[in-house]
């Protein structure tokens, strides 16, 4: 126990020492993402808006229920959260392999690279909240104090993605084709999450499964409740239960990720 505490303290000290590296890496990612693009940071807002517009045009004609709620807002809430998950985990996955040249030549705590990828996606996500605001204003959605609670599922999602990113980054070092598998997994995951469709009783067992075991369901539905709550978009269980479950899920994922990463990190160098 004492040894564990000492080790934890040492780890925090090291994290503090490399904090500046984390900040610089995040800055680098953001700078490089929009360098040489005409609209620059505006893309962070435009991309979710455009994809929302496309989805709205198609799906309002398919789903009857889309007329009962503020559908553009419903879409964009689901979309930005899910894209954050997909982007951050996909980038995190390559974070260790992609830093091979550096890791072979100097000692750096390796998780810094994974953490920086998820964090730079988070910064991008925060910028895309501008798109959410635009949609809220444009559709005349009233602003309420409870909107700020939307930060809770965002935080949960961030922690969740750091954990998942660490797990993926560590396994990708040994199995490179995981990248291809992951793009299929996220696609399936997207269809299993109510982003553009609505939860309904017709789903039966699948609906129960999604409610219980899909972490993205917990984060997205929770977020929607805080942003457009009174229109209760098929939330079951209540947002507060989802908040608790989401938190447990996020922390569990973080622990799994850290544990796996830590176990195999010394062998990375032999494979990159």
């Amino acid at each position: 126990m004492r040894k564990f505490l000492k080790l934890t303290k040492e780890r925090f000290r090291k994290f503090a020492q490399y904090w500046d590296l984390l900040v610089l890496l995040v800055q680098r990612d953001i700078k490089l993402k929009y360098r040489r693009s005409f609209l620059g940071y505006l893309w962070s807002i435009l991309t979710p808006l455009l994809s929302m517009a496309v989805m709205a045009i198609v799906f309002t004609r398919i789903f009857e229920r889309s007329k009962e709620v503020n559908f553009p807002l419903y879409l964009i809430c689901g979309n930005i959260l899910f894209s954050f998950m997909r982007e951050s985990t996909t980038l995190a996955m390559n974070s260790v392999v992609g830093s091979a040249s550096l890791l072979k030549k100097t000692y750096v705590p390796k998780y810094i690279f994974t953490l920086s990828k998820v964090t730079s996606c988070m910064v991008n996500f925060v910028l895309s909240l501008g798109a959410l605001l635009i949609v809220m204003v444009a559709t005349g959605e009233p602003f309420r104090w409870i909107n700020f609670l939307g930060l809770v599922p965002i935080l949960e999602l961030y922690v969740f993605c750091v954990g998942l990113g660490l797990l993926l980054a560590a396994t990708t070092v040994f199995f490179r084709d995981l990248r291809n598998i992951w793009s299929v997994v996220t696609l399936a995951w997207m269809y299993m999450t109510p982003i553009f469709w609505f939860m309904s009783d017709k789903l039966g067992d699948l609906g129960v499964f999604i409610r219980r075991f899909n972490p993205m369901y917990m984060f997205i539905q929770q977020f929607r409740y805080f942003i457009m709550g009174y229109q209760t978009v098929g939330i079951d269980p209540s947002a507060w239960v989802l908040m608790l479950r989401g938190a447990i899920c996020a922390v569990a994922m973080l622990i799994i990720g850290l544990f796996t990463f830590n176990r195999v990190k010394n062998r990375f160098i032999l494979f990159i």
Binding site: Q17, Y18, D20, L24
Partner: peptide, 14 residues
């Protein structure tokens, strides 16, 4: 920009 990142990799503060 690289000088600063390289310094941080070596554990120096900004």
């Amino acid at each position: 920009e690289n000088i600063f990142i390289n310094g941080a990799v070596l554990g120096h503060s900004r």
